[in-house]
Design a protein around this nucleic acid. Structure first.
Length: 490
RNA sequence: CGGGGCGUGGCCCAGCCCGGUUAAGGCGCCUGGUUUGGGACCAGGAGAUCGCAGGUUCGAAUCCUGCCGCCCCGACCA
């Protein structure tokens, strides 16, 4: 290969940056922390979006769209929320530019100052709850189940392609319920949908659990999350679902009349996943040769590469490839025939490997004679020769196999690298080895901070499926109700 | 906000210390030809306010001053 990625073992984050750029997922824009999502990357995001959108709709949610700009005053209504977001908000102060009277270029027109500054949304709770106040009067208006696909801006100090960009794309669900229980159920339902998506489509195993108080969303009563393990051992928060209690209802005075005619505050949830999932996808499966995509999300599941010498052979082979293309497409497989004569087959092999296309199907003169083709798996990098009779069902089966193999490989890796430890020495060693560590913790933020200061590991979550036997805290020796998950994280 | 790096055709970059008149090379692009089972080759061609602003000088990509921007590593956060 001419273009080589930095191997993961040498510099994992360099590898990550190169793969994102070289596989044509995204590039840096000229604005710090912002990225251009390229067509190939966006196609993957669109698939994620379509699948998730379908899941939301199946569970009774509808899409809506709220404005990008939020009056500054809205943000200050919920105390914890301000605390969490105020320091990373982009603020619009003016609405007009003018020619610089002293020279060339444009300046902000000082006469065009806004009376009240506008915040570019870092999340939409405030504008949505300000709106819900007008929408909700009666228990008959509940539950209100809304999702929106949007961009948000958080002025982070340190950014990384897909994992933490200044502007990012996401969906944010915002629901209102008559009872606490219903809202709690919704919070959990949506987390389960996220896990179903990441495991079933992204082939990325996750650990579901509760966040500790210090890791909670600003303004939430509880935050549920899914945590994934990247190949370098770091945890990545892949999605969150928040039970907001009545905090936003109180802040924005959202009440409804019960059957009995009483006025009560509504119960709320919000939940979201973002283009960060793209980063998660890259870091879960890809290798030193490039991207590896799970078939269910791959924009191209199968690429057909014709191999030939001379014009006459080319015509014959490309014709045969077109037949195969038609057959695969009829079977519902996303297929691309690359008959571009200006690129040689070797170039195409390397290119589609870099881009993570799950299966490559090559047809050359020998295959034409034998009615066969070469099938190459991207994930295992193995090749086999197959008859072209019944190729579509065969490819379908192979795609399914790849999808499930990717999941089990990732899951095995996570299981193998998850350990129970009971002493502080073991704990430090395990964290040093980039493990997921299940250990006892005394339940205090002080201890959580102490551990994080000393080891860089944080509590990723209190896993739902965790070990609930009591013990003693690995750091302080104080009583602990259960084991929690520690890891270094992104 | 600290530490490091970088700004030169679309992309990667040499040249800068030690100033000198056509700014080198590779990739890509265009034209023609030969090629094609793992990133082909030949020939020709187009394409550059050397990040910006000042200064020194006969002469600045190169030296000096100031500024701007981005990337990477930390601290902080999804």
């Amino acid at each position: 290969m001419a273009k080589k990625l930095t191997p993961r073992s040498e510099d994992y984050s360099k590898w990550y940056n190169e793969i994102v750029v070289d596989a044509d997922l995204a590039q840096h824009s000229d604005v710090k922390g912002c990225m251009i999502i390229k067509p190939y990357g966006y196609a993957i995001w669109e698939r994620m979006k379509d699948v998730l959108d379908g899941m939301f709709k199946e569970t009774g949610h509808m899409n809506a769209y709220f404005p990008l700009f939020i009056p500054k005053s809205y943000l200050s209504k919920e105390a914890a929320h301000v605390e969490g977001f105020a320091k990373e908000c982009a603020v619009v102060t003016h609405y007009r530019l003018m020619n610089d009277p002293n020279g060339k270029g444009l300046i902000v027109d000082p006469k065009a100052k806004l009376e009240e500054e506008l915040i570019v949304r870092p999340t939409s709770e405030t504008i949505i709850w300000n709106t819900y106040r007008k929408w909700i009067q009666s228990y008959r208006d509940l539950p209100l189940l809304i999702n929106q696909w949007a961009n948000v801006v958080r002025w982070e100090m340190r950014t990384r392609l897909f994992l933490r960009t200044t502007e990012f794309l996401w969906q944010e669900g915002h629901t209102a319920h008559a009872t606490e229980q219903e809202a709690q159920e919704e919070t959990r339902r949506m987390l389960d949908i996220y896990a179903k998506f990441t495991e079933g489509w992204m082939a990325m195993p996750v650990i579901k659990g509760d966040k500790t108080e210090s890791e909670r969303f600003a303004g939430a009563e509880s935050t549920l999350c899914i945590e994934a393990r990247m190949q370098d051992g770091k945890a990545l928060q892949a999605g969150t679902s928040h039970f907001l209690g009545q905090n936003f209802a109180k802040a924005f005075d959202v009440k409804f009349a019960t059957k009995e005619g009483k006025q009560e505050l509504v119960w709320a949830t919000s939940w979201g996943v973002s283009t960060r999932l793209m980063g998660a996808l890259v870091m879960t499966h890809s290798d030193d040769a490039g991207l590896v995509l799970p078939p269910k999300l791959a924009p191209i599941e199968v690429v057909i590469v014709p191999i030939y010498k001379g014009q006459e052979q080319m015509d014959e082979i490309v014709d045969r490839c077109r037949e195969i293309e038609t057959e695969l497409r009829a079977a519902g497989i996303r297929v691309k025939l690359d008959a571009d004569d200006s690129k040689r087959s070797g170039w195409k092999f390397a290119e589609y490997e870099l881009k993570g296309v799950p299966i490559r199907l090559a047809v050359g003169p020998r295959d034409l004679a034998n009615n066969s083709c070469e099938l190459a798996r991207r994930d295992t990098r193995t090749k086999s020769f197959e008859s072209l009779d019944g190729i579509a069902p065969h490819v379908r089966t192979l795609l399914d196999t790849i999808q499930s193999d990717l999941f089990s490989t990732a899951q095995d890796r996570m299981v193998k690298n998850t350990v129970h430890v009971d002493t502080w020495e073991e704990f430090q060693a395990a964290i040093n080895d980039e493990m997921f560590v299940l250990a006892h913790w005394d339940g205090t933020s002080e201890t959580e901070d102490l551990i994080s200061d000393e080891t860089k590991a944080s509590i990723r979550c209190l896993p739902f499926d965790g070990d609930l036997t009591p013990g003693v805290c690995v750091k302080t020796g104080n009583p602990s109700a259960r084991r929690v998950l520690f890891a270094k994280s992104y």
